[in-house]
């Protein structure tokens, strides 16, 4: 289990980016984090990854405090960040430790097959499309079999079609080993398609403002009424988190904005 205990972050220049985030995530759970720009989502994710340890509080994975990158935690960034001097296959195998050649090749081949890029194994990253490159990045992150996979707006640079494609793909891959996924996104649909829980954050300092369970069976139909219902709830929470009038029909604007203030 992954536990965040009052995780706070103040950057050296005095920016109070995170103000005490407490959150427990069960193994295999998919949590989406959503919120306005600059509300500390990336900071939170980087703290969990151990890339930028928190200045207050603690990130604890299976009883172990995370202060540096950990083998059980993988991360996928907004950009694929493939190493341009390695062929696709070697990029996928980048996180594999010392293994016999055959094992290594087998694991890489499996990972590439799972993301549907077997034919690109010996191609340079520059020769991939954006969506393909991000799939390679996903394969690279999954190959070491992380227990927790963090994703920071992984599909935001892709076109809408590729994005939904990769969302479905990610779910497929997740179903294999069922790691914990923590996904930062700007896309409400993406959050609801993927997550068991959507955390809405609010800024200055960043903290969790609201939490919405997504109790829909998978695969989820983006067109269904139930989906739409959850979407409205998330959008309303998002609006309140930004002290804005809600976009949905329900709720009076004044009351909603007021409701945000007590937090």
């Amino acid at each position: 289990m992954l536990s965040l205990d009052r995780v706070g972050k103040t950057y050296p220049k005095g920016v109070h980016a995170l103000g005490g985030v407490t959150l427990d995530v069960e193994l295999g759970e998919i949590v989406a984090v959503i919120g306005g720009s600059g509300c500390g989502k990336s900071t939170l994710l980087r703290a969990i990854a151990g890339l930028d340890p928190p200045s207050e509080g603690a990130v604890v994975l299976d009883g172990e405090r995370i202060t540096a990158p950990h083998e059980k935690i993988g991360i996928i960034f907004q950009e694929p960040r493939l190493l341009p001097w390695l062929k696709v296959a070697d990029n996928v195998g980048f996180g594999l430790g010392n293994l016999p050649k055959a094992d290594r090749a087998a694991q890489i081949a499996t990972a590439l097959r799972r993301v549907g890029l077997t034919d690109k194994a010996s191609v340079w990253p520059r020769e991939l499309s954006g969506g393909q490159a991000q799939r390679v990045a996903i394969a690279r992150a999954l190959v070491p079999r992380p227990e927790v996979l963090l994703l920071d707006e992984p599909f935001s640079a892709l076109d809408a079609f590729t994005r939904t494609d990769l969302q479905d793909h990610l779910l497929d891959l997740w179903a294999d080993a069922k790691p914990t996924l923590i996904l930062v996104t700007h896309d409400v649909d993406e959050a609801i398609v993927l997550a068991d829980r959507v955390m809405v954050m609010r800024p200055r300092p960043g903290r969790i403002f609201d939490e919405i369970e997504v109790d829909l069976p998978r695969p989820r139909d983006r067109q269904s009424a139930a989906f739409d219902f959850v979407k409205r709830r998330v959008l309303a929470a998002l609006d309140r988190s930004l002290n804005r009038a809600p976009t949905g029909a329900e709720g009076e604007p004044k009351a909603a904005a007021g409701a945000a203030l007590w937090w």
Partner: peptide, 27 residues
């Protein structure tokens, strides 16, 4: 820096970081 961070995320030692990220990047 983003590539260096990839190395960090995969827990490369300083030596591996030099050999696997910095040297090829600089070449």
């Amino acid at each position: 820096r983003k590539l260096v961070e990839v190395g960090r995320a995969f827990r490369l030692t300083d030596f591996a970081m030099v050999r696997r990220i910095l040297m090829p990047a600089v070449l």
